[in-house]
Design a protein around this nucleic acid. Sequence first.
RNA 1: GCCUCGGUAGCUCAGUUGGAUAGAGCAACGCCCUUCUAAGGCGAAGGUCAUGGGUUCGAAUCCCGUCCGGGGUACCA
Length: 600
Amino acid sequence: MTNMLIEQIIKEKIAEAVQQLYGQEFDSQKVQVQNTRKDVEGDLTVVVFPFLRISKKSPELTASELGQYLQEQVEEVASFSVVKGFLNFTISTSYWINQLAEAFNDSEFGFTKAMDDSPLVMVEYSSPNTNKPLHLGHIRNNLLGFSLGEMLKANGKKVVKTNIVNDRGIHICKSMYAWQQWGEGQTPESTGIKGDHLVGNFYVLFDKHYKQEIEALISQGLSKEEAEQKAPSIVAARELLLKWEAKDPETIELWSMMNQWVYDGFDVTYKELGVDFDKIYYESETYLEGKAEVLRGLEEGVFEQRDDSSVWADLVEEGLDQKILLRSDGTSVYMTQDIGTAKLRFKDFDIDKMVYVVGNEQNYHFQVLSILLDKLGYSWGKGLHHFSYGMVELPHGKMKSREGTVVDADDLMAGMIDVARKTSEELGKLEGYSEEEAMETYKTIALGALKYFILKVDPKKNMLFNPEESIDFNGNTGPFIQYTYARIRSVLRKAADKGIHPSISFDASLQISEKETELIKTISLYPVAVAEAAEAYSPAVIANYVYNLVKEYNQFYHDHSILNESDEQVVNFRLVLSANVAKIVKSGMGLMGISVPERM
RNA sequence: GCCUCGGUAGCUCAGUUGGAUAGAGCAACGCCCUUCUAAGGCGAAGGUCAUGGGUUCGAAUCCCGUCCGGGGUACCA
């Protein structure tokens, strides 16, 4: 990550120098420019090894000849040094000061605005089942999806955030059956239990009975497989699914009622998490479209039917296996509805790119989906993008709902807020705030800690979450970053009280410290980070960038006083520098869906 | 079995297209609040980058083998 402007100048001038000095063409884009190591003097470093073949001179001599040329030709180059064959350039202070002024004057610094003809990206994320509440795995999904949307917008894309709710299928039938059998008419109102949790309870209850039935059947001499198929509960749930697909009014009514409980619960969780959607699809509304597509494929000979009347796709030619698309009883599977959903989406929107934020356990599914849609004749089938992210693991392995090791989303957030409140009260930070204002701040900090903890990790990698240890508020954490923001805001308020408002009222010849230069360099890299993050589909790029910026700012803050400085130009420069850091922190955290507090 | 992803400090994670002496945080140890918020700053300590080969001026990074771990390969989603 290097500053593009000056990097580009250096690349071109180095290529020119090679041409001038050694008489050979060199592609300027292949010139390697990197940030100079912290312990070496300079800002940008050119690697000269690739030129040795051309110069036929030692690395040291080649470097100093090239350095000499640039110092003479490039105004921004103040000086250069050669260390072990690396050519280090020091860029003039005035260049950096001008960079700061530019960043300061741009309220949308680092962002590209979307135009009417900008490409439209649809981002699918969240995609819950309606048989149980959201858990930690969903949290990672939701945070990544939301953040991806924000990052794409920041890079000039039009974004439609979407959600596919898996509201039908055998899973919800299990909860429905359990409620019918053992529910005794319970509702969220009658029990005071959040709707999604209540339905989840019945799903667990189903599983308990199901397991008991299986054991009973096995003890009667049935094989495990037979028992799993013949247990009365699962038979009943399957019947419910058939009745549902046959639109049996009583079944539909029960289904609607229980799903509504779940939606009401999800809404609360989504709101707390701060995520939202522009368009929600329901599997119950798309699976028929999928079924129709599969049957069309069958007619056209793309798919085949077996003797038991189940429908399959043969993907052996693609190096894959057989894939079921319709069960022998005619009901549809996950894949069936995903085909229908994709088709409807491309009908509803003028999509340039479709992105699915779904865990890496489904890599195979999306590989197949893409091929199937292509086989069905959709030109966009091959272009679907699966944003595949890693699992959240607990110290003892994967989360398993049936083993009670699931970290519930609502509980987790509530717990974090509690920790934030206790910490804040201990430190006595929010004196003078009303209870309401304080609560807002606790939430900001708690959610900041949780979101940053998850988003700072490379999405592609599995990550570990230990529920025994609460998430830290010190070090490389969300609250550390928020704290820096709050400190800057505090300084800016104090400045305003004195009637000082940051403005570019210092000139480029101002003498500034190394740390200050360092900070401006980092500031000027924000647009690069924003672009890289979107390209890599990785909020972690933003997280790392912001953390680094804030760490540098804290060092500056520790070593330099701002308002107590006597030279007005210096006061102003430092205020501008600080305000800029605050602006970027707010913006960068915003890309991760994290808000920042005025005080903490 | 086959496919696929991963293995960096005690722990959690960074490490850009191959570049200089592999970096942070946590934990543990020392220091710094009469001065803009100490949820902060500074110092010291901590490494056979799983392992064996290869490619080259140069490898945590690229290639091959081995070991270990995750995920997938369902008429689950």
